[in-house]
Design a protein around this nucleic acid. Structure first.
Lengths: 147, 147
DNA sequence: CATTGACTTGAAGTTGACTTCAACTTCTAG
DNA sequence: CTAGAAGTTGAAGTCAACTTCAAGTCAATG
């Protein structure tokens, strides 16, 4: 690994498929250099940037949001407010998830939630129904395939 | 509200748009009756079923998974194993989210994570990069619009 | 009886983050 | 020099859970 890495090297080191790398570049999140020929060459800093992208994604930010923190050349200018806000959101989410988890555990253990005889189950249903954690939080895929 | 409700009534009571109700029916999650005419009529039990759907969604289940717990006629047969597994997943997710939140808070407060000088930030990046919480957990939209 | 508003259908569109494809071009090893 | 691996492009496809649309049906009201 010299000063410049080619796309497959970056892909190998990060686990991010090259198609995604091109996509990120096209979206303006990362940059590449074409020294000679038409192939991309990446500076080592791209690894930090990709890590930051992963961080943002894990925090639930959209790529467009992340881009604004990622002045593709030079160091990132992190939007601390946004991060703090996201932290708060995550906090709230954690609360709801805890409730869900408790509810699920109860539902899994309670012998009689067949037609909603169990008051706890009722409560769970209500909690879930109250759009507390608005709409599906997505395909979490805790053990997802990144083929 | 008598024994049968029409689609707009159900929609009103649950907040679920009628288009979604038709979609659920098409997917085999709920059932309707056509007494006369070609309009749908829903039994009161559909409300419980919809609550269960909301619960499942909040727990991160796909509609296809939910359907299997939702024998559209008669009481639901809840898959306790699946629920328990989901609870475990959520637990793991909570752990990661806590790490993320701490990391984000730090990143938002730390004065110098410009080019990754801060070791804590480094750690955060690593944690995020390690596909711990595999791929975006989606558009959580903590305060989403259900227009 | 006619208008209006709610309902019906199947099909197509939406969103975000990618992936896949076809058709080339370019490196690299032999 | 030449094959074949790896890179390039723009465009199109994918996935889930819906929404939107067009065109037609039905029911209640004046």
């Amino acid at each position: 690994m010299g000063v410049w890495m080619d796309i497959s090297e970056v892909s190998k080191q990060t686990g991010i498929p090259s198609s995604a790398l091109r996509y990120y570049e096209q979206k303006g999140l990362i940059a590449s250099v074409r020294e000679k020929g038409e192939r991309r060459r990446y500076a080592a800093t791209v690894l930090d940037q990709l890590a930051l992208i992963a961080l943002g994604q894990a925090a639930g930010l959209a790529l467009d949001d992340i881009r604004s923190m990622l002045s593709p050349y030079g160091p990132p200018n992190i939007d601390r407010q946004l991060l703090a806000a996201k932290a708060d959101e995550i906090d709230a989410l954690i609360k709801h998830l805890k409730a869900m988890r408790n509810g699920l555990r109860h539902a899994a253990a309670c012998p009689a939630p067949s037609h909603v005889e169990c008051p706890s189950f009722q409560k769970l249903l209500k909690a879930a129904a109250s759009g507390a954690l608005e709409k599906r939080w997505g395909k979490t895929k805790l053990h997802a395939p990144r083929k």
